[in-house]
Design a protein around this nucleic acid. Sequence first.
DNA 1: TTAATCCATGTAATCGCTTGTGTAGAGCCC
DNA 2: GGGCTCTACACAAGCGATTACATGGATTAA
Lengths: 346, 346
Amino acid sequence: MGITIRDVAEAAGVSTATVSRALRGLPNVDEGTRSRVQKIAADLDYVISPSASRLASGRTGSIAVVTPYIARWFFSTVLSGVEDVLQEADIDLLLTCIGDHNNQLNRSPVAPRLRRRVDGILIIAVPPADPQLRELIDLGMPTSMIGLTAAGVPSVTIDDVAAARLATQHLINLGHTRIGVISGSPSDAPFTAEFDREAGFAQAMNSAGIEVDPMLESYGYFSIEGGEAAMTALLTQPKPPTAVFALSDEMAFGALRALRAHGLRPGVDVSVVGVDGHDMAEHLDLTTVVQPVAELGRIAADSLLAQMREGGEQPHSARVDTKLVVRGSTGPALGTTPSPSSGSRA
Amino acid sequence: MGITIRDVAEAAGVSTATVSRALRGLPNVDEGTRSRVQKIAADLDYVISPSASRLASGRTGSIAVVTPYIARWFFSTVLSGVEDVLQEADIDLLLTCIGDHNNQLNRSPVAPRLRRRVDGILIIAVPPADPQLRELIDLGMPTSMIGLTAAGVPSVTIDDVAAARLATQHLINLGHTRIGVISGSPSDAPFTAEFDREAGFAQAMNSAGIEVDPMLESYGYFSIEGGEAAMTALLTQPKPPTAVFALSDEMAFGALRALRAHGLRPGVDVSVVGVDGHDMAEHLDLTTVVQPVAELGRIAADSLLAQMREGGEQPHSARVDTKLVVRGSTGPALGTTPSPSSGSRA
DNA sequence: TTAATCCATGTAATCGCTTGTGTAGAGCCC
DNA sequence: GGGCTCTACACAAGCGATTACATGGATTAA
């Protein structure tokens, strides 16, 4: 019921082979013939059959994006960057949500569903311990990861250790010494970012000669509610912190809310700094270390496309810079003369 | 290089036709044969080639989701609901971002790219005036829309008029009479929701015998910044409103921020109510009319699948209920005894 | 001039599955 | 027991492209 390549071939008085070459821009086609074929194809409103093309060529012209969440800010923002690039490259984007490892959504494993269906895979911030991750990598197709690293697989990340150091150092520079941290979860499969950001926090504290007080560590499970609970826990300690580093902006949002609930002023009574550069951070006046999230997606998609093209090319990982953006949620420790802090005041 | 249906057929000592029928659960296959084939297919680690299957059957087993934004809360939340259903149904989800009509991202039109590529289309809240919308509908394939209606196309929406009435009535019940509204944009291609919510606002005002003051209408362009600017504009009037209805939660967020910037307390000095049930609304203590956004996506996806299955079935639209959730951002008009307000206090 | 290239094009096999049609045997009825 | 209907299966013709290989004419090199 559709126009096929044969109809075009007949109308143009050439073989289907020539039509195929002409339309795909392959060499060894007379330019006159090519434009004639193009015109006829357009006139006939011919649309290639992807199924036939895929079957014959063995390429699917599509890639899968595998993500643990769709509706969370970080993930949807990465996704939008990815989509940007793929649409440009005329590659189909298959969206698949992997079950949340912690929540145990009992989704069927995604890896088998992807075989023979896509030419490449883009994985967004799956916890490295997720068993599905291995299956995906073992599929052996071009793969690129975002916010997550694994041996032998190219990835795009920020330097989470450095980002955490940046945030922590900012608090230290402001004269704080009782610095709390709102982490992800005590023991569950951590995201790469979680692990590294904790490390960066500890590094900054150590270099400044400040001891990390285990009493000032609390868990926010990367959610707003969690961050609120974590901050509340910190505030109800005998000696509460004067500043808190939250491993993510969303947890920092919760922390800010807890502060208000306790009648404390962010940036005055207690300083809060996050990491991510969430859209809402600006509106909540949160100091944060910004990462270019959509850009992460774009870079990873580009890298994946390169991998798919060249094949032999040694795929390499990219590391993207972050930037401290100082806002009202952080301020000098009371009774202290702060040393000049790095970062731009927004 | 992969196992084909023929390998399975040979190993099972049957024809490929039988393997095909057995594996797809078609009738007229001996149950003994069927389970034998299934076992062999599993042992051989056979995976069907979608391209071949699609070419032969004419069905693609995939649907496209067309959306103007990916990284915005409403859209990504709908998307997650859709993905949920489609994964369950084993249908591929092709994600395509249509250019933003207002921002004029010069994206190539999406409709032609979808032909022969998907069996159905799901459209999320594209402005009805977007020229691409017609092209998509004219493709003539099963289609379902979310947050948007068009003649002859099944859709899933909330009753935006009623939702706006609910929000406005809440303010009226609290004794407010100088009620402002933060709308989308003055004249640009409006979303369906925009149009209807304005209508609902006017209805509620009229029934209460309150005149709508054009001076108290401001435009927030459905963004946080826009909402902030709009509220600022309202506040700097000679006679500012005591309550404001924002057509979306995100604009309401901006409004709250403007309030704080002016030293005004939300819910005390000025009341603000939004619509959407955005994740952050709870954390910003915003009174809002909640719509079940992910559910919208799920229902639309289900409806699309039904359409694709039955074919002859008269597709019908669904309308989903909303609920007023009262929080701290709204309170009684000063010097007034409020009448009891509907909605649950959260 | 002749052989070697090269370019534009055609021929036809192939990709791996679906499905309409054909058929043999089993069970049924009268 | 002959004619029916049914079931379980095989056969083989597509589906609509891609692409290795073949071909013949034009161009170039020797």
